[in-house]
Design a protein around this nucleic acid. Structure first.
Lengths: 199, 199, 199, 199
DNA sequence: AATGAATGAGGTTTCATTCAT
DNA sequence: TATGAATGAAACCTCATTCAT
């Protein structure tokens, strides 16, 4: 029995992995269930054995990745004794996460606006995002206590940084060249965010 | 003759206005041409009299709004004698623009990824975005000469701020409450961006 | 009054001429009323002042050209003293007519099959085709009396030749090169039709 | 596995059969996919499971029938020892083919003129038509060697006969009654083609 | 008489989801 | 459990025709 469940879990993960790749490379609407099944190497119906829905599949992916992110933040930021390193790590993690999953997150928001995401699935995501935010708040709170941050409400600060990183990774307009060197971008962002743009 | 053209222009603007509202409230895919026509109070075919395409309609909207933005930036930033005010205005304009048109812009990017935006229409948008960026660069360049900005390549800085504002306005996850007070957000952003988060 | 009518006639002819060109170059369905109007240099509505219908326009064209053909056949065949020359002329006229107007004729038949051609318009065409056929029959009848044709019912022979020329000019498959030399085709046809393919 | 494929093939054939009937009775444009589906007794989408396109469906039909024709010509003409019988058979086969499929062929040509037939599908048809023509050429070549045909280039002769039969079967104007006795038409054509119209 | 803006019926195609095997 | 054939709703777009000016 446990063996069977292990196998199921494995298959579910496989599907999720493949879907992640596809949803990351193209908008949600441009990826068909057919294509996912073909890529996974299973029948179309099989996908519906593991996920209620195309939207459910999307939600599960995000949930999984958010879980990983929370884990990383907890380890590298929350439990990190050095405040500056903690903040630094936080910025990098945010950047990498949003950069990697921007397409997917944006798809999810879009589906949500169209009321295609069931309440129960939404809650799961909201909870994880809440946890993530709380951890950031905790870090900034510590910064306030140590008087090493500008005097701003920690919660607002956390929200702001979250927002900033969301779109700083959005595959937007203008020349593509800028997107091509993440290293530069993140270091530039850290510079601006820690020192401001004024000399 | 001029009267007729005036009327046509008026009608085109009316359609554009209505479409702007709808595309702003919901993703592109969730708005049907039928609905736009109904809202305008005309037949479906009429829309196609003024715009080649649903995608063309979207592009025209953006082009129109970008034009306005460029005009404002030129006036309030480029031609502003005081550097700090110029930068301040720039940040506010960016924020308002992306906040107001984020849904639309995001729709456009998505359609572009699916190769639904004709080359010629894309160029129009790209040109305007280029102009906008150049103006920002010019402002930052001046800041560098006056030694009032951190020593960072102006072009990169402009790109970064553009990116930051794109998503800082993205109607993303988490609690919606945060989105509800733009005034607070923009002042917080300006604080962080000018002074950095470290004390 | 007569002047006005002359002008009307002239305009009607102009529209017919332009439509003829367009319907000859592409299938009926692929030519829009807009395009005809643009090419003529008048408004779309104007066309409907002179013709009830797009199908009516098509019918009128054919009627006009058929009239010309009947005229030519009467002159060059029916009133020609020399039987062989009469037949020869008939073959050439048929060939040129069907070659020039095959697209249009084929369009008309198609529309008729879709019941888009009003009874009254159809009759006009049928009458002219009847006249044309009768003339051919008359020529062949004479040939029979002079015992210079194979003993076949004249009516059937006329119908057969008509049919042969219809499709011998149809812009069909295979290499296009063959179509390119009408002179060769017509002389070859005449050879085969007068002597048969057997040596 | 083979069973499933057999069933699929069967269904594909069923659809093709029904479509053949409909496209034969009316022009391509006048037959809707809905109608085909209804006639077959399946959903609209099912059609697209077996054929990429409405145009693809049309092309497949023609390809299938051309294949049969090629097979018949090979058997009854190319491998026939008696030249006259071979030619006779060829004329009959041509007549029957074009008479039966004229509407469809004409539709195909029309769609091609409107660039609705993909290159790859066109090639398939062209190839088969090429094969068919080559076989006719071979027969006539033999006739030339045996000095039993008028001294005309075999290729041109084959093309001419092809053309003649195409349109001799076109459901054209005039009284329909003539069309009603194929036997008479074909015998008359053979008479004319073998002996010419002159006595 | 001439115009051309407005209309909306109608057709093709896609694709998430179901369900019999 | 796994499959993939079947489905049909839904959306975009075209274009002949009308009619107010």
């Amino acid at each position: 029995m446990s063996l069977k469940e292990k196998e199921k879990e494995l298959k579910k993960n496989l599907i999720a992995e493949v879907a992640l790749q596809l949803f990351s490379s193209r908008p949600f609407e441009a990826v068909t269930v057919d294509e996912i099944a073909r890529e996974v190497g299973c029948g179309k119906g099989t996908i519906y054995l593991y996920f209620k829905n195309k939207d459910h599949l999307l939600t599960c992916l995000i949930s999984r990745e958010l879980e990983k992110l929370c884990h990383d933040i907890e380890e590298q930021c929350l439990h990190n004794a050095d405040l500056l390193t903690a903040i630094d790590n936080y910025l990098v993690l945010q950047f990498q996460f949003f950069r990697g999953y921007n397409q997917i997150l944006s798809s999810w928001v879009r589906r949500r606006l169209q009321n295609q995401v069931r309440e129960e699935w939404m809650e799961d995501i909201q909870n994880k995002l809440g946890r993530k935010l709380e951890m950031a708040v905790a870090v900034f709170e510590r910064g306030q206590e140590e008087k090493r941050l500008i005097p701003v409400e920690s919660y607002e600060l956390a929200r702001l940084l979250e927002a900033i990183f969301q779109d700083a990774t959005f595959p937007f307009v203008g020349e593509k060249s800028w997107d091509s060197d993440p290293e530069r971008i993140i270091s530039l962002m850290k510079l601006v965010l820690t020192r401001g743009i004024l000399a």
